[in-house]
Write a protein that binds this DNA or RNA. Structure first.
Length: 354
DNA sequence: TCTGGGGTCCTAGGACCC
DNA sequence: TCTGGGGTCCTAGGACCC
């Protein structure tokens, strides 16, 4: 029987590290750490991806490069090369789309695959083999009744395997795990759940939404127990996502002080961002500036361009600079970010007026 | 081990208008 | 005169994900 009620999640194994090893075969089997500019002595840079060999030393993404170097001094440290990962991602997605299925790319190294498929297991094996044969990269595939189940199932399949979760097997796999194992529950939500005495997925699944109201908004209070029972969205969106915003941010190796320095950086970020966005044929509706102090306090101010969406670099840059007036700027600055919220892509609406 | 960069979605409160 | 309710836009911030 054709069974379109199954969803697959394709999750590339150590994607960024794998792309690097693919073009440097001599690194195969060695601990590889990718992140920042590849200099493990530099402060304020973190690991983007560690190869499985490096993970055995306790190196993981998000860890400062210097900490990674301490744990694994023999690792090969490489700078991040986003263009290469983007190109490799396109290769993988093209392989998936060559099958008669629905493909929803989910970030660079993941995709949901739907479609009316008679034998989900056989399809998963075929997808995995084709990705490997045509890109040299390996992946795990999770099969489930919705995106949440499929996504978690893929984790069980890593590396390189196929794993299935269903409504019937969900709780046996997940019940004893901490709530953090759920897709969408992060550290903040975990802490609040723990404060309410809820620690495991099974406990959360058995919790009434009312019991969560002291710490959560009603919508979240309803959503969390359902999530713990293995519920989730099952729609596969094949249309490419149109970016809604685009940003550039920089953490400085040493804190900035003084308005001149700050203005200089805001200008540079705004121009780089503007060139990128306008080069992609988009227009900018709102401009935001974010400043993180040395004490790790974030402040953001945003401005809606009064004259409507703009295609002019100077308008973007001036808007970002003007936003600086809303910051006190009386503390050392660790990070500056500039973000553009984009006007809806109106290319095919054909408005000929200039 | 002092904590990146690129995004998305959600909520809440105030302004403003009818 | 103590005073409504809806709708929309704008801004700020929280949380999460890869």
């Amino acid at each position: 029987m054709a069974d379109s009620a199954w969803l697959r999640h394709v999750d590339m194994d150590q994607f960024i590290a794998a792309v690097e090893v693919r073009r440097r075969p001599e690194l195969r089997g060695r601990p590889v750490v990718v992140g920042g500019n590849g200099d493990p002595t530099r402060a304020r840079m973190v690991v983007a991806t560690a190869s499985y060999e490096a993970r055995e030393f306790g190196v993981h993404s998000g860890m400062p490069l210097r900490a990674a170097a301490r744990r694994c001094p023999d690792a090969v440290f490489l700078p991040s090369d986003p263009d290469a990962y983007l190109a490799a991602s396109a290769e993988v997605m093209a392989v998936l789309r060559s099958f008669p299925v629905l493909v929803e790319a989910w970030g660079l190294d993941e995709a949901f695959v739907g479609g009316d498929i008679a034998d989900p297991q056989a399809l998963a094996a075929d997808l995995k083999a084709a990705v490997h044969a045509r890109t040299g990269l390996s992946c795990a595939i999770g099969i489930g009744r919705n995106k949440h189940q499929a996504k978690i199932a893929a984790k069980f399949g890593k590396p390189g395997g196929v794993y299935t979760l269903t409504d019937e097997t969900w709780m046996a796999h997940m019940g004893d795990r901490p709530v953090e194992a759920l897709w969408g529950v992060g550290t903040k939500t975990t802490r609040k759940l723990n404060e309410l005495g809820v620690h495991t997925v099974a406990a959360l699944a058995a919790t009434e939404p009312e019991a969560l109201l002291p710490r959560f908004h009603i919508n979240v209070a309803r959503w969390l127990p359902a999530l713990a029972r293995g519920a989730g969205d099952a729609t596969v969106v094949t249309e490419p996502r149109v970016a809604k915003s685009r940003g550039r941010e920089t953490t400085f190796a040493r804190d900035l002080t003084g308005r001149d320095q700050i203005e200089e950086q805001v200008s540079a970020l705004a121009r780089a961002l503007g060139e990128e966005v306008l080069g992609a044929g988009r227009r900018v509706a709102r401009v935001a500036v974010k400043i993180r102090s040395a004490s790790f306090f974030d402040e953001t101010h945003i401005h809606t361009l009064r004259g409507g969406p703009t295609g002019e670099l100077s308008v973007i840059e001036n808007a970002a600079l003007a936003l600086l007036d809303q910051f006190a700027l009386d503390r050392p600055v660790r990070l500056i970010g500039v973000r553009a919220e984009l006007a809806p892509d109106d290319q095919d609406r054909g408005t000929p007026n200039a």
